[in-house]
């Protein structure tokens, strides 16, 4: 087990190294850079810009900048944002909550609605409902999220005036109800795709369970259809459900990026786009590493779980 773990761990570290190098190079490939924001300011002369470039250490060769950054990271120093000077981890932390809130609520919606559609589709196989659910899922996967958000804003904010067009809460009103009001549209928009995926998944899972012997036995015992379903289907699907929710974790960075942009949600996705726009290298690199580490960790955990369940993999 230990050998296996070490092997996986070293592979993960190599992966992180690759990610950091590619990220750093690609980021520096973009012309412009962090000083472009002063490009239109008449009082920032070329002298001022050259001075700032040197103060930020951007005039050093790329490899030196990378090694400096990487060495600090290894020591636990993620650097400071070029924009507000705050430590990168603080910056990420400040935006993480908003994203988790949005993703959490959309996951709840997706699982609730998706489970219902999936089970109903499976128990009423080939019915009109099942057919519509299948088509609906496909369409849902095809709608551009940003466009769906726009249409939502048009209908519910501009035309009907029922829901806010953006933001997480109204200034001065920190009540849960206010948060909820702002959460409705973005979380539904974000949930759309997940409802589609989850309902398809639940349908398959339910069909599997229904065809199995123990359900037939249970049915023979005279248990009601409903109880059988609740007990076995949901029970059996619970583990994959947690896995699916867990699999979403690495996408915390970009999973909600589009939705956050459309609804001006102050989360990680917006932070990522803003930081990219200002070429805030430390924050962009921090976000990339943060999400890469999440990916690696989730894969590692999955590998370990599988290895524990299936000893053959451990041996190979």
């Amino acid at each position: 087990m230990r050998g296996f773990l070490l092997n996986r761990l070293s592979q993960s570290l190599v992966l992180l190294l690759i990610v950091s190098v590619i990220g750093f190079v690609v980021l520096n490939l973009i012309p412009g850079g962090p000083l472009a924001q002063f490009g239109l300011d008449p009082s920032m002369t070329q002298d001022d810009l050259d001075r700032l470039r040197e103060q930020l250490g951007l005039n050093r060769p790329l490899w030196m900048q990378y090694l400096d950054w990487a060495w600090r990271l290894v020591q636990g120093d993620w650097g400071h944002s070029f924009r507000d000077g705050a430590p990168v981890l603080d910056v990420i932390g400040r935006h993480l909550v908003a994203t988790l809130l949005l993703m959490g609520s959309s996951t709840v919606i997706a699982i609730a609605i998706g489970t219902w559609i999936g089970i109903r589709g499976a128990t009423h196989r080939y019915s009109v409902f099942d057919y519509l659910a299948t088509v609906g899922a496909m369409v849902a996967l095809s709608i551009p999220t940003f466009w769906f958000g726009l249409v939502g804003i048009y209908v519910f904010s501009l035309r009907l005036g029922w829901l806010p067009a953006g933001n997480m809460y109204t200034i001065g009103d920190g009540s849960a109800l206010n948060y909820l009001h702002h959460l409705i549209m973005p979380s539904i928009v974000l949930a759309l795709v997940h409802v589609a995926i989850w309902s398809r998944y639940m349908r398959t899972a339910t069909l599997d369970v229904i065809s199995q012997e123990f359900v037939k036995t249970a049915r023979a015992k005279g248990l009601s259809e409903r109880r059988i379903l609740m007990k076995h289907v949901v029970g059996n699907a619970l583990l994959p459900m947690i896995t699916l929710a867990g699999m979403q974790l690495p996408s915390v960075l970009t999973g909600a990026l589009v939705t956050e942009t459309v609804f001006t949600w102050p989360g990680m996705g917006r932070l990522f786009l803003d930081s990219l726009g200002y070429s805030d290298y430390p924050v962009v690199m921090g976000l990339l590493m943060f999400s890469a580490i999440l990916v690696v960790l989730c894969n590692l955990v999955a590998d370990i779980v599988v290895a524990i369940i299936d000893p053959r993999i451990r041996l190979s």
């Binding site: 012309p31 412009g32 850079g33 472009a36 490009g39 008449p42 200002y278 070429s279």
Partner: peptide, 27 residues
């Protein structure tokens, strides 16, 4: 070009043919 590219070297070091810019002349 994206803002961060447009107003960087491309603009400051005169690498453009022509550009539309909203500029303040006075400090």
């Amino acid at each position: 070009l994206p803002a961060a590219v447009m107003w960087g070297e491309f603009w400051l070091k005169s690498q453009f043919d022509s550009a539309i810019a909203g500029v303040t002349y006075l400090i």
